[in-house]
């Protein structure tokens, strides 16, 4: 039993260090991606199309609904305490700082994380990866790096759209239910929104994008030979992505307030 426990610990540590090494290698390749010119550019474009453009509708609906709910609740509850102006602060905290990046990460993880893991897993099972290696193409550079960059860039863009829809578009939704002056609303938003909020939200999105994409790529490449491993890789990719995003969010928020 002790032997088994020790073997499991050694295997776990080896996997952990392998994952860390893989993570840094992917991130390094992703950072150097633009220096390599057109290598994998088409992959990057398609990744942004699938991850960013096609997720825009879902992201917009969630942002509109969330913003409208906050405005309606805030404008009916907060004036009772004489704190109407807090509505804008709450809106900024929820949409720009916290839920915006996190919900965007969840959307991307659920849509693209599984897709990347499944696609790479299928490529492993069908020996496509071996074919890339055999012709001298580094799978990390050609397959992983554009996906990581694409997912991260998509996350940043989606977060900006989420903010726009959540802060501005939701005003239109809320106006249908509760009349709020346009100047009053946007004056309040402009007064409450700071550059720190925007940078904080974008930083979280950047980190979440890397986490989601690297996790998906890692799980996709982790498939060995059986096609039954592919759905498992997708599930593990989504689960791991959620947990890591929430942990990273907690750490980043903690750092922000420290």
């Amino acid at each position: 039993m002790i032997r088994n426990l020790g073997a499991a610990a050694i295997r776990g540590a080896a996997d952990f260090f392998y994952a860390i090494g893989f993570f840094f290698r992917v991130v390094k390749n992703g950072a150097l991606y633009f220096r390599r010119g057109q290598v994998g550019f088409r992959v990057l474009v398609m990744q942004i199309l699938f991850t960013g453009v096609q997720a825009l509708g879902v992201s917009a609906i969630i942002a509109l609904s969330l913003g409208a709910v906050i405005i309606i609740q805030g404008s009916s509850l907060l004036p009772q305490f004489g704190q109407s102006r807090l509505m804008y602060t709450i809106l900024i905290i929820v949409i720009t700082r916290e839920l915006g990046p996190l919900l965007t990460a969840f959307i991307v993880n659920a849509r693209s994380g599984t897709a990347i893991a499944t696609e790479l897993g299928t490529m492993v099972v069908s020996h496509e990866i071996e074919a890339y290696v055999s012709v001298g193409l580094d799978p990390i550079s050609y397959l992983a790096a554009p996906r990581v960059v694409g997912v991260t860039v998509s996350m940043l863009a989606l977060d900006i759209y989420f903010n726009v829809f959540g802060l501005i578009g939701s005003y239109l939704v809320a106006r249908l239910i509760r009349p709020i002056e346009f100047n009053e609303y946007f004056g309040g938003i402009a007064a409450a929104l700071t550059a720190t909020d925007i940078v904080s939200g974008l930083l979280k999105c950047f980190v979440f994008g890397i986490i989601v994409s690297v996790t998906a790529v890692y799980r996709g490449f982790a498939v060995q030979r059986a096609s039954t491993e592919i759905p498992v890789a997708g599930i593990k990719s989504v689960g791991g992505g959620f947990v890591l995003c929430i942990l990273a969010d907690a750490v980043l928020t903690l750092i922000y307030y420290i």
Partner: peptide
């Protein structure tokens, strides 16, 4: 994709200018 990225960048610039 280019339009998607450029529009996002323009919106970000607009928000930053407003702030």
């Amino acid at each position: 994709v280019g339009g998607f990225i450029l529009l996002a960048a323009a919106l970000l610039c607009g928000i930053l200018v407003m702030v």
